[in-house]
Design a protein around this nucleic acid. Structure first.
Length: 644
RNA sequence: GCCGAAAUAGCUCAGUUGGCCAGAGCAGCUGAUUUGUAAUCAGCGGGUCGGGGGUUCGAAUCCCUCUUUCGGCUCCA
């Protein structure tokens, strides 16, 4: 008998060779109907694969991430089968599940797959799913696998097989289609009830720009039609929140072909938001002991040779500008750190001066590939809320923690409740991508790992994601509709201080090397504002809204009273405008609602007589009659709730 | 940069076997109306149909090319 431990730690006994499906049946028939796969000692298996040893198991359904993964993995398999049936001769690359659905990379030769083909592909997939095909797991020798795919002429699979170890190779067979596949799969294809082919795109084989570009077909599937409908509604909601659309509608920013690709033009209302964000962060930083500096937009090429940026990114940058007579070479500033290092070197520093926290809203320019540009999230000229903390080695951890606190203050003020962290370390197998010694890297990486551990920051570790001069901790937020965005970053750097020969005099009267922390809690103003727009769907927190209040006189008879109200609000630092257009009140309300102005104040005969205002909240409707003082208190409360 | 799709008025879009001076709604301007919690009425102006080239008696519509935008890939200091 086997001892099988369930997630709630109860242990049940079963005969050897029992399968996940049979275990589920022994618990309840309903569960058995919904089990997609089984987790065995942390590894996901097919639910019909027999167990021959004691194990900790978890039965996976659609509600588990791993269950969805198996579901979509099988869906990718079905899509490949459908493609093979519809377009014989297609060669197959890889077909994994992804966060939302799955894709398959295929080589269709000369044939081009377009949206017009999606319907036929979906229909064929549905047909296959309705056959309730069982995916048969087959262990196969390496030679057997090579023979199979040689006969089929599928060079991509052969390449994958060559990298696998003999004895660990499995095929999955369903219908007439056999795929090289590690599994796991759901019990049969009948679970897949709703299918949508989403898009096609080119994708380099194995992500290598020098290799052939395959056709990547994206799809998503669900166990119920209703789930698909809900997913499509969510996509519609995302479209409505698109910062590029809202940026135009709310007059926040624009781009002009005449100015150039990826160079944003901030309109007055967008500028108002950005300046308020900057003022907010400056205040937080002033309280945290930062000093503001300013540096120019260009710098001598040699500055970036010293930092290593030129060697690393020179080819991918805007090329240096040459002066006409002397032939000096200047680069558009791609980073602020070299300039800040030079400010550090302005005078000898004592250990008593450290930590020196130097902040700048520094505008930088990077040559992003044209196909990469995307609204405000990927641009060629942007402003970092940058700062560099120069500190003693034993100050690194406490400074790092203080930066994390600033990041948290910002997330709270802007209502990002759900966030995760990622520790980005060096790729240990690819050290030539980075500058600096192993010793420095170890120190920097240890500092981040220890800080996260000591402060209970639950961060995933990613190797190979570090900056070229140091490891980093990045913060990812989840927005109001569940999408993940990377925002703030904190980096520990032992290397640039060395390259710039930064020094301080210690209490031993000897020269020592400081450590640098690079940090940007917003990341860049452009990207942050873009994420914020999508997070709040254009309904900015009250303290940020370019216009907080629209005063709506019922008719021109009450314009003088409206003006008085506006002046009184000014005394409370409440930003208002008067809508004195020759329109009906309903129209003025509608327009203020569409413009996402947080409050509307309706003033007419009654209000003028009583010295009150009729308050309407955006999205919520009529709040009733208020005195100016009471309204100011309401506004004040709403703002301080987020900012404290 | 690469693969695919798209580009018509400030915005959203119609015009889809090539054929009357290219249309609508919103926005704008002018006038009437003096308005009470999500669109008052009337009139007017506005487009080299992304640029260039070609096919044709005739092109927004077909072909070539360039540009830009969108979805991905690669990249992201």
């Amino acid at each position: 008998m086997l001892n099988i431990t369930l997630p709630d730690n109860t242990v049940r006994q079963y005969v050897e060779g029992i399968t996940g499906h049979e275990i589920a049946l022994s618990i309840s028939e309903g569960l058995a109907r919904n089990v997609l796969a089984i987790q065995v000692n942390g590894e996901v298996w097919d639910s019909n694969r027999p167990l021959y040893a004691d194990a900790n198991i978890k039965l996976l359904t659609w509600n588990d991430t791993e269950g969805k993964a198996a579901f979509w993995h099988t869906s990718a398999h079905i899509m490949a089968e459908a493609i093979e049936l519809l377009y014989p001769g297609t060669k197959f690359g890889i077909g994994p599940n992804i966060e939302n659905g799955f894709y398959y990379d295929v080589d269709m030769g000369e044939r081009v797959l377009t949206e017009a083909d999606f319907k036929a592909l979906e229909d064929k997939m549905l047909e296959l799913s309705r056959e309730n095909q069982v995916l048969l797991r087959k262990e196969i020798s390496k030679q057997g696998a090579i023979d199979h795919f040689t006969a089929k002429g599928d060079e991509y699979k052969l390449e994958l097989i060559n990298e696998l170890t003999d004895g660990e190779i499995t095929l999955y067979e369903s219908g007439k289609f056999t795929d090289l596949c590690r599994g796991p799969h759901i019990p049969n294809t009948g679970f897949i009830k709703a299918i949508k082919v989403m898009s096609v795109a080119g994708a380099y084989w194995r992500g290598d720009i020098n290799r052939k570009q395959l056709t990547r077909v994206y799809g998503i599937t669900f166990p119920k039609q209703k789930d698909l409908t809900e997913y499509l509604i969510l996509l519609e909601e995302a479209k409505k929140r698109d910062h590029r659309k809202l940026g135009r509608e709310l007059e926040l920013f624009t781009f002009s072909q005449n100015v150039g690709l990826g160079l944003p033009l901030w309109l007055p209302k967008g500028t108002a938001i950005r300046e308020r964000l900057e003022a907010f962060l400056k205040k937080v930083q002033r309280n945290a002991g930062y000093v503001q500096v300013m540096t120019p937009h260009i710098g001598d090429v040699n500055l970036y040779k010293t930092s290593g940026h030129f060697q690393k990114y020179g080819q991918d940058s805007f090329q240096p500008i040459s002066t006409p007579i002397e032939g000096e070479q200047f680069m558009l500033k791609p980073m602020n750190c070299p300039h800040h290092c030079e400010i550090y070197k302005f005078k000898p520093r004592s250990y008593k001066d450290l930590p020196l926290r130097m902040a700048e809203f520094g505008t930088v320019y990077r040559y992003e590939q044209s196909g990469e540009l995307h609204g405000l999230t990927r641009v060629r000229g942007f402003t970092q809320d940058d700062a560099h903390i120069f500190c003693l080695p034993d100050q690194v951890k406490s400074e790092f923690v203080d930066v994390i606190k600033i990041v948290m203050i910002i997330f709270k003020a802007l209502d990002f409740k759900d966030f995760t962290a990622q520790i980005s370390l060096r790729d240990p197998n690819n050290k030539e991508k980075y500058i600096g010694t192993d010793e420095n890297w170890d120190k920097a990486e240890q500092a981040i790992l220890e800080v996260c551990k000591e402060n209970n920051i639950n961060a995933v570790i990613e190797y190979g994601e570090a900056a070229f001069y140091g490891p980093k901790l990045d913060f990812m937020v989840r927005d109001a509709i569940g999408r993940k965005w990377q925002l703030g970053t904190i980096q520990v750097d032992y290397n640039l201080p060395e390259r710039f020969e930064l020094e301080y005099i210690g209490n031993d009267n000897q020269k020592h090397r400081p450590v640098m922390i690079h940090r940007a809690p917003f990341g860049s103003m452009e990207r942050f504002v873009a994420v914020l727009i999508e997070h709040c769907a254009g309904k900015f927190p009250l303290w940020l809204a370019p216009e907080q209040v629209s005063i709506l006189p019922i008719s021109e008879k009450y314009e003088i009273y409206a003006k008085n109200v506006s002046l009184l609000l000014n005394n409370y630092d409440i930003r208002s405008k008067i809508d004195n257009r020759n329109e009906k009140t309903g129209k003025k309300i509608r327009d203020a609602e569409v413009e996402r102005i947080p409050y509307m104040l309706i003033v007419g005969e009654k209000e003028e007589a009583e010295g009150t205002i009729s308050v309407r909240k955006q999205g919520d409707g009529d709040l009733g009659s208020f005195s100016i003082e009471a309204f100011a208190a309401l506004i004040n409360d709403e703002i301080t709730k987020l900012m404290e």
